[in-house]
Simulated assay, not measured.
Amino acid sequence: MPGFKRSEVEPTVLFKPWSPVLLNLTEYLGRRIRLEFTTNDCTFTQHFGYVYLDVTENCSHPVTGNVICPGVAPITLKTLPGFNEYEWFDVETKKLLGMADSLVLPASTPVGRQIAVKLVPYPGLGCIQTLYTTIQGPKVNVNQPPPECVFVDITASSITAGNLPDLKYSYWMDAAVTIPLTNPKNITKSGSYYIKGQNSPGCFAIGEVKVIIVSPPPISITDPEPVNYPETIDITTSYIPEAGLKYSYWKDLKVTVPLPNPKAVNRNATFYIKVTNIAGCVTVAPVKAYIIYPGIVIPNAFTPNGDGVNDVLTVLIDNSIKIKAFKIINKWGDVVFTSTDIYNYWDGSWNGKALPVGVYYWFVDGVDTSQRKVRQSGSVAVLK
Rank of each mutant, 00 (worst) to 15 (best):
374 V>M: 04
211 V>A: 13
40 N>D: 15
29 L>E: 15
302 F>P: 08
150 V>T: 10
370 S>A: 11
131 L>P: 02
109 T>Y: 05
24 N>C: 04
139 K>A: 12
261 N>R: 09
225 E>S: 14
269 A>L: 05
20 P>K: 06
283 T>H: 12
270 T>G: 01
282 V>N: 01
268 N>W: 00
24 N>T: 04
138 P>Q: 07
302 F>H: 01
213 I>H: 08
277 N>R: 11
229 Y>E: 02
14 L>T: 06
294 P>F: 05
66 N>Y: 13
309 V>K: 14
174 D>N: 14
247 Y>R: 02
205 A>P: 04
20 P>A: 05
223 D>C: 06
266 N>P: 02
307 D>S: 06
44 F>Q: 13
102 S>P: 01
208 E>M: 13
309 V>G: 00
264 A>V: 11
319 N>K: 14
296 I>H: 02
75 I>S: 12
110 P>G: 03
15 F>I: 00
89 F>W: 10
217 P>E: 11
374 V>D: 00
230 P>Q: 03
41 D>E: 14
91 V>K: 10
174 D>A: 13
305 N>C: 09
12 T>Y: 06
131 L>K: 05
231 E>D: 13
205 A>Y: 11
247 Y>A: 03
299 P>F: 02
337 F>E: 06
6 R>G: 01
105 L>C: 03
80 L>Y: 10
71 G>Y: 08
33 I>K: 09
244 G>P: 05
193 Y>I: 10
364 V>T: 03
16 K>R: 15
128 I>K: 07
132 Y>G: 04
176 A>Y: 04
146 P>C: 00
163 N>K: 10
253 L>G: 00
55 V>L: 15
220 S>N: 12
277 N>V: 04
280 G>K: 12
369 T>G: 09
195 I>Y: 10
259 L>W: 03
9 V>I: 09
218 P>L: 07
356 P>D: 13
208 E>G: 07
230 P>N: 04
138 P>E: 14
16 K>I: 08
54 D>L: 14
252 D>V: 00
176 A>N: 15
322 K>C: 02
120 V>P: 02
149 C>L: 08
304 P>Y: 08
90 D>T: 08
335 V>Q: 09
49 G>K: 11
147 P>C: 05
285 A>H: 01
173 M>F: 08
114 Q>L: 04
202 G>S: 14
280 G>F: 05
128 I>V: 15
265 V>R: 00
104 V>A: 06
157 S>W: 05
364 V>M: 04
216 P>N: 14
275 V>L: 02
89 F>N: 13
328 I>W: 02
128 I>R: 03
129 Q>D: 04
186 N>M: 14
66 N>I: 02
22 L>Y: 10
124 G>S: 06
378 G>R: 12
326 F>R: 01
232 T>M: 01
312 V>R: 12
237 T>R: 09
98 G>T: 03
272 Y>H: 07
241 P>F: 03
225 E>G: 01
210 K>M: 08
352 G>S: 09
321 I>P: 03
64 T>S: 14
326 F>P: 07
111 V>D: 03
66 N>F: 13
38 T>A: 15
348 G>S: 06
299 P>I: 03
251 K>A: 01
